Amino acid sequence: MLGAVAIGTLVSVGLGVYGRVHEPTFFAISVAGFSSGPAVKSWLGTLAFVLVLVQLMSARRMYRGGGRVAAGLHRWSGRAAVLLTVPVAVHCLYALGYQDTTVRVLVHSLAGCAVYGAFVAKMLVLARPGGPRWAVPVLGALLFVALTALWLTSSLWFFTTSGLTF
């Protein structure tokens, strides 16, 4: 357990250091059908957040004896959520880097680093059966909180300032 948390922490800190020392390119991703890079990231982030809510509900069901269906839904919604966040994270780190210009941006940068550290720690704990029963729910909750903070400081902020644009 301690090793998984240490590695997850190293991932979080490593991403933060890379984002801080890397010279941002300010090159935005562009996807056909979307008006801007921030719109693409906001919609991908929103889809990932919806899947995180599915994760929360399926985890709750699993811990109440939900069986194989809840477990399968949990695994696949988690995989899809992570896949949706990867292009957003790559763009944020490469194009924008770690920033602290406002409280919102600082919280967003910290939460972004925490997401992948919590994810790595959770996956490492899951791969080693026999650990403490509380470890996976605690790491899952940390991941949920970090992703929620990301969504609040990016997608929701974008939609409230720019509207529901594509």
Rank of each mutant, 00 (worst) to 15 (best):
A71E: 14
A111L: 12
A95D: 14
A89Y: 08
F49M: 15
R79G: 13
S30Q: 13
G45C: 07
K41Q: 12
L47Q: 01
E23Y: 07
M62C: 13
K122S: 10
V115C: 11
G97R: 06
Y63D: 02
V88Y: 00
F34V: 07
G140F: 01
G14Y: 05
C92G: 10
S77V: 03
G97M: 06
P137F: 11
V17G: 04
P24V: 05
F27Y: 11
R79S: 00
V13Q: 11
V145E: 09
S12D: 11
V21L: 13
G8R: 02
L124M: 15
V103C: 00
S109E: 08
G112Q: 09
A111S: 14
G45Y: 04
A127C: 12
F27L: 13
T101E: 14
A95P: 14
V50R: 03
V86N: 01
G72M: 11
A111N: 12
V5T: 10
G140T: 10
V107D: 14
M1T: 03
G33C: 05
L147Y: 06
F158K: 00
P129W: 06
R20H: 12
Q99N: 01
G117D: 04
L150I: 14
V17H: 09
A81P: 08
T165F: 02
V5W: 00
S155Y: 05
V40S: 04
S154G: 13
F119P: 00
P38A: 05
W43N: 05
T161R: 06
V107L: 15
V82L: 15
L143S: 12
G16C: 10
S162P: 00
V54C: 05
G3H: 02
V31L: 14
P137Y: 08
R20G: 01
G112R: 10
R61S: 13
G97K: 05
G45M: 04
V115K: 06
V69Y: 03
F26I: 04
T148N: 09
V54M: 03
S35D: 12
A118R: 08
I7T: 15
P87H: 05
L152M: 13
A111D: 12
W76N: 06
R79L: 03
P137M: 12
V86S: 04
W134R: 15
Y18E: 02
L10Y: 07
T160H: 08
L56R: 08
P87V: 12
G8P: 03
I7D: 08
V115N: 05
V145F: 12
S35F: 00
V120R: 01
L106D: 07
L150M: 15
A80T: 12
A6Q: 09
R64M: 10
L110P: 09
Y94F: 12
F119H: 02
T85D: 01
G37K: 03
R68H: 06
G163V: 10
T102L: 11
M57N: 01
A48K: 01
V120M: 08
T153F: 02
L53E: 13
G131Y: 00
T160P: 01
V21E: 08
L51C: 08
A114F: 14
V82Y: 14
A111E: 13
V125H: 02
Y116A: 00
L73C: 12
M62R: 15
S162E: 10
